[in-house]
Simulated assay, not measured.
Amino acid sequence: MILITGAGGKTGKAIIKALVARGAPVRAFVRSIAHGASLAAMGAREVIAGAMDDPHVWSRAVRGTEAIYHICPNVSPHEIDFAKELIAAATDLRVPRLVYHSVLHPQIEAMPHHWNKLRVEEMLFASVLDFTMLQPTAYMQNSLAQWDVMKREGVYRVPYPVETRLSLVDLDDVAEAAAIVLTTSGHSAATYELVGTLPLNQIETAETFGWALNKTIRAEAETIEAWDQRARSAGMDDHERETLTKMFRAYARDGLKGNPNVLGWLLGRPPTSLAAFAARVAANQA
């Protein structure tokens, strides 16, 4: 049995889908049982609901598993505390393997959610667990929040300069890599950067979406203040807005640059290009 934590989010669901496709038995750990029916329909054999700060829930979730894939809720201020509870439960119950969903370049202190993941990696280094770190870059799927605006207005809007260079990855490739690491041997103590593209500036990204949509798409930078107002109006809480604001400022200064060689090696094929991803989305929405 493989436990997926944070299983109700887009990453958890993608990994469950990839594991089920490989015939692996999956237990899903979610915050609310409201996710249970949809995860069971995807092929999860068991669903456990509870809080990640509850050691009793962790014991129930972890017991009897052969491997764990840990996904903390996005930009959670409790990432380190949740990981402490998980590591304690996994150690006590002698779980054979733990794969941690980290992030590309967790050593960037200017991004608090990256820095917290580095602290969790350090905890795993100090543990007795057989661990693997997966470090994905920004998902191509994040662009889908702009898809309707691109189709309607011909604008790809980002809260940092259009010259900012970011490496991207298809979430489906991340899920496939995670499934490979969870179901095959040889990955103990490994740290894998999961990157699908060389760094692209936002003009190149907009042009790629334009080719898929068969229209001109223009990259446009908006101020962080304008983004913050939209996020506030949409109900995003203060912590998430502040964390993402720091991320956007770090992007503006340094970008987020990676190399796709490691992901290609894991997959046994070239990672999905942004052009292929955009074409797939356009075809699915046609």
Results as ranks from 00 to 15, higher is better:
residue 32 S to Y: 05
residue 33 I to K: 13
residue 33 I to Q: 13
residue 33 I to Y: 08
residue 33 I to N: 08
residue 33 I to T: 06
residue 33 I to C: 04
residue 34 A to I: 13
residue 34 A to S: 14
residue 34 A to V: 09
residue 35 H to P: 03
residue 35 H to N: 08
residue 36 G to P: 01
residue 36 G to V: 12
residue 36 G to K: 15
residue 37 A to E: 15
residue 37 A to P: 15
residue 38 S to E: 15
residue 38 S to G: 12
residue 38 S to P: 02
residue 39 L to M: 04
residue 39 L to N: 07
residue 40 A to C: 11
residue 40 A to E: 14
residue 41 A to H: 08
residue 41 A to P: 07
residue 41 A to M: 07
residue 42 M to G: 03
residue 42 M to I: 08
residue 42 M to C: 03
residue 43 G to N: 06
residue 43 G to Y: 04
residue 43 G to M: 12
residue 44 A to Q: 11
residue 44 A to E: 15
residue 44 A to D: 04
residue 44 A to Y: 05
residue 45 R to W: 05
residue 45 R to E: 11
residue 46 E to Q: 02
residue 47 V to F: 12
residue 47 V to P: 00
residue 48 I to W: 00
residue 49 A to P: 12
residue 49 A to K: 15
residue 49 A to I: 15
residue 49 A to C: 10
residue 49 A to W: 05
residue 50 G to H: 09
residue 50 G to D: 04
residue 50 G to E: 07
residue 51 A to K: 04
residue 51 A to N: 02
residue 52 M to N: 02
residue 53 D to M: 06
residue 53 D to I: 08
residue 53 D to W: 00
residue 53 D to R: 11
residue 53 D to F: 01
residue 54 D to F: 11
residue 54 D to H: 04
residue 55 P to G: 07
residue 55 P to I: 07
residue 56 H to I: 12
residue 56 H to V: 08
residue 57 V to S: 03
residue 57 V to L: 15
residue 57 V to G: 04
residue 57 V to T: 13
residue 57 V to R: 15
residue 58 W to G: 04
residue 58 W to V: 02
residue 58 W to E: 03
residue 58 W to R: 12
residue 59 S to M: 06
residue 59 S to K: 09
residue 59 S to V: 00
residue 59 S to W: 01
residue 59 S to L: 05
residue 59 S to G: 00
residue 59 S to E: 10
residue 60 R to L: 08
residue 60 R to F: 07
residue 60 R to S: 12
residue 61 A to G: 06
residue 61 A to I: 09
residue 62 V to W: 10
residue 63 R to V: 14
residue 63 R to E: 11
residue 63 R to G: 11
residue 64 G to S: 09
residue 64 G to D: 05
residue 64 G to R: 10
residue 64 G to Y: 14
residue 64 G to Q: 09
residue 65 T to S: 05
residue 65 T to M: 13
residue 65 T to E: 06
residue 65 T to A: 10
residue 65 T to L: 10
residue 65 T to F: 01
residue 65 T to N: 10
residue 66 E to P: 02
residue 66 E to R: 09
residue 66 E to H: 06
residue 66 E to W: 00
residue 67 A to H: 13
residue 67 A to E: 14
residue 67 A to D: 10
residue 69 Y to N: 14
residue 69 Y to T: 06
residue 69 Y to Q: 08
residue 69 Y to C: 09
residue 69 Y to P: 04
residue 69 Y to M: 02
residue 69 Y to E: 11
residue 69 Y to F: 06
residue 70 H to C: 10
residue 71 I to N: 00
residue 71 I to T: 03
residue 72 C to V: 15
residue 72 C to Y: 08
residue 72 C to K: 00
residue 73 P to M: 05
residue 73 P to Y: 12
residue 73 P to W: 03
residue 73 P to H: 06
residue 74 N to A: 12
residue 74 N to V: 14
residue 74 N to L: 14
residue 74 N to W: 15
residue 74 N to I: 14
residue 75 V to Y: 10
residue 75 V to F: 14
residue 75 V to H: 02
residue 75 V to M: 12
residue 75 V to R: 01
residue 76 S to M: 00
residue 77 P to F: 04
residue 77 P to A: 08
residue 77 P to I: 02
residue 77 P to Y: 06
